[in-house]
């Protein structure tokens, strides 16, 4: 997405863990204000459930896209080019949301576009989470110069311009799906690494790690049984907060024409292609745009509500 942000406000749990290595990043990276404390009755969790529920619905639609789409998303039908949505003149119930210049049904393409975007974003996040967690564990456990080197890499990565790097990677490696996933992974991993490393250091300070070692547990076992379960909550929060950014990043790249390539349906690409038809056939761009807006807003709502929840729990 166009915003490099990783700030905004982090949940207390996350920022507490982040604070464990604040010294490395320097003060400029640390002072992100925690979400404002609320004086007054607790906000009901309805925001969380409503937003989450709607998002789940959208994801479901995406997953079921091949089953519920009225048409194949790439079925060209030149007889029905540029049909407006059904409620307008010239609309047709077979193409509820209208068609694009190649006669492809917009509803089907939107559904498949949701599927594509979410799939790429999910894979990308999984990759970055794995990478980040692995490096964080190594960094925390190994300590010493290994730790310092990895943290310096983290610092550098934070300063690097995400979008430009992704463009470079895409130019070098092509626009296949795996490239997008890897690129996304590479620009997002450091958040996870720092959280995990923070937790490892924290547990080390408690003597936990040493005690387990004395009892004969292998480092892997320690990692799996003790460290990761504690991290589930903040990691989930961070993943949820990162998800929309990644999703929109892919949409943006596809919009520019360097992301998902045709004929695969992608919401960003549809908007990009539809840009030139805004005068007379505005629905070609508007329909996917509305989907993007809906997803973006719902995620924002969900993310805010989640952060509030985490903060309230942390406040006790």
């Amino acid at each position: 997405m166009t915003r490099l942000r990783d700030t905004g406000w982090t949940g207390r749990a996350v920022s507490r863990l982040r604070g464990a290595d604040a010294g490395v990043a320097g003060p400029a990276a640390a002072p992100v204000p925690a979400a404002p404390r609320r004086a007054g009755p607790r906000r009901p969790a309805t925001r969380l459930y409503v937003a989450g529920g709607l998002l789940g619905l959208i994801v479901l639609l995406g997953i079921l896209a091949p089953l519920i789409s009225p048409h194949p998303p790439n079925a060209v039908d030149l007889l029905n080019r540029v049909r407006p949505p059904v409620w307008m003149d010239g609309g047709d119930w077979r193409f509820i949301l209208g068609t694009d210049p190649l006669g492809r049904d917009l509803l089907s393409r939107c559904l498949h576009g949701i599927r594509t975007s979410f799939a790429i974003a999910t894979l990308g996040l999984i990759f970055s989470a794995c990478l980040g967690i692995a490096l964080g564990l190594v960094s925390g456990f190994a300590g010493g110069w290994v730790d310092r080197v990895i943290m310096m890499i983290v610092d550098v990565f934070i300063s690097l311009p995400n979008l430009l790097l992704m463009l470079c990677g895409i130019a070098l490696l092509g626009t296949e799906t795996w490239v997008l996933v890897v690129m996304i992974g590479l620009v997002k991993w450091e958040g996870y690494a720092r959280i995990v490393r923070g937790q490892v250091l924290y547990l080390r300070e408690l003597g936990y790690v040493e005690a387990s070692r004395v009892l004969g547990a292998s480092p892997l076992r320690i990692m799996l049984r003790h460290i990761l379960p504690n991290l589930a909550s903040p990691l989930i929060v961070v993943i949820t907060l990162n998800f929309p950014g990644v999703l929109l990043m892919e949409a943006g790249l596809s919009f520019l024409g360097v992301g998902v390539q045709p004929p695969t349906a992608s919401l960003g690409r549809m908007i990009g292609d539809g840009r030139n038809y805004l005068v007379n056939s505005w629905w070609i761009a508007l329909m996917p745009a509305l989907v993007v807006v809906a997803v973006a807003l719902l995620f924002q709502l969900f993310g805010d509500a989640l952060r509030d929840r985490v903060d309230e729990r942390a406040d006790g």
């Binding site: 949409a251 943006g252 505005w282």
Partner: peptide
Amino acid sequence: YAVPHFVIGIGLIL
């Protein structure tokens, strides 16, 4: 905050 640049652009154009 939530909506990306290009979508805002499209919206404003429309």
